[in-house]
Design a protein around this nucleic acid. Structure first.
Lengths: 201, 201
DNA sequence: TTGTAAATTGAACAGTGATCAATTAAAAAA
DNA sequence: TTTTTTAATTGATCACTGTTCAATTTACAA
């Protein structure tokens, strides 16, 4: 059984998050449980509640880590992109979800209780993903319209999210759609073109 | 306690679905339970399993009823629409979700086990919603491109879904977006315009 | 009236999130 | 070094979940 001498608080927190994310990746939101995480790291359930305060905060923190992993994935994808960075961005959005479907779904499966707001610290960490999109959108917009980048970027993220969600939850398959990524990319480019963006041929 | 003399099988099925949908609307997916539905209609848990076979099938059926309610809502919204039926469609999509957030969310919160496909009968009933969108999209497309209506409609549904999901789950609020409906409508109209659609001024 | 087939029950099982008195270990004080 | 204090850790306990299925009850046919 775990003891204080084994792990500092920071180490314990990292241990719980790492094992929690692993369990989430394996079995998804529906099969996730605090008890199973505790068992795997050799601590009792109560310890997780000591460290994270509640089940919801544990989940929100695991999902925030996933957000950060996702943002790293996007940056890596952009780093090896051709001249079409917008296409790379959409592809990176999809491929992270495809590579880690359970982690990606957990972000949207978990809803905080109505009386509980997302802690500012976690919200800020999640913001990095949108920031990347805003930056890339601003790059292709004409100087005259760069101030519209934040709102347009949010809307494009929602657009891609919708396509990605339907691709992963089977809605697209049920409708007979076989190329969700192409569809999402087309919608994004149309919207950028309508905003006067300069896109590669 | 419920007896056979009280309700025929069809009546019992309808009773379970009605009370199940009511419970879902009240407490959402997280607070839903078969036991609570059984208690409210005065039958034992086992009866729900007799009628629906499993928890997942009960949920899938309740959500299918919600799909049908949603489609009716869309048709009613279209019936009182101005010349801009596309805007009415997007508004109807959003307003159903806003009016019944727990019912709407339950559709996407519930995922069938990976080894269980959506029964054909339920999938067909859910299709009515997409059919409406395909019909309206085909109406505004030029004759030369009407064959593209199904794929474009699916993509537009995904686009609006993304915006609606972000509006309801708080993602847009966290990003500072205050007019998700306007954003969704703008994206849809851009995509239709790019496809050569005739839209009201 | 009796027999049969079907519907209905609810206790039982293994699991969940959550709590908190009791224990144990580390750090501080004597 | 001992003693005291503080904090971390435990795991039994509670009320709940989906699921099963032998036992019961009901409806209907013979």
């Amino acid at each position: 059984m775990g003891r204080r001498s084994d792990h500092s608080r920071a180490e314990l927190e990292a241990l719980i998050l790492a094992e929690g994310q692993r369990l989430m990746a394996e079995g998804g939101f529906a099969r996730f449980s605090a008890r199973e995480v505790a068992k795997r790291i050799g601590y009792a359930v109560g310890t997780l509640y000591n460290v994270f305060g509640s089940y919801d905060l544990l989940l929100a923190t695991i999902n925030t880590v996933t957000f950060e992993d996702w943002a790293k994935h996007l940056e890596a994808r952009l780093a090896r992109a051709s001249d079409d960075r917008i296409a790379a961005l959409v592809e990176g959005y999809f491929s992270f979800a495809a590579d880690h479907p359970n982690l990606w779904s957990a972000i949207y499966d978990h809803r905080l209780p109505t009386d509980m707001a997302m802690p500012d610290a976690l919200a800020a960490r999640r913001g990095v993903l949108t920031d990347i999109v805003v930056r890339e959108v601003a790059t292709v917009l004409p100087d005259a319209g760069k101030d519209r980048a934040p709102r347009l970027a949010r809307s494009l993220v929602a657009t891609v999210h919708g396509h990605c969600a339907f691709a992963l939850n089977g809605s697209f398959a049920l409708m007979g759609e076989t190329a969700p990524l192409d569809m999402a990319t087309a919608r994004v480019k149309e919207a950028l073109a309508a905003a006067g963006a300069t896109l590669p041929a």
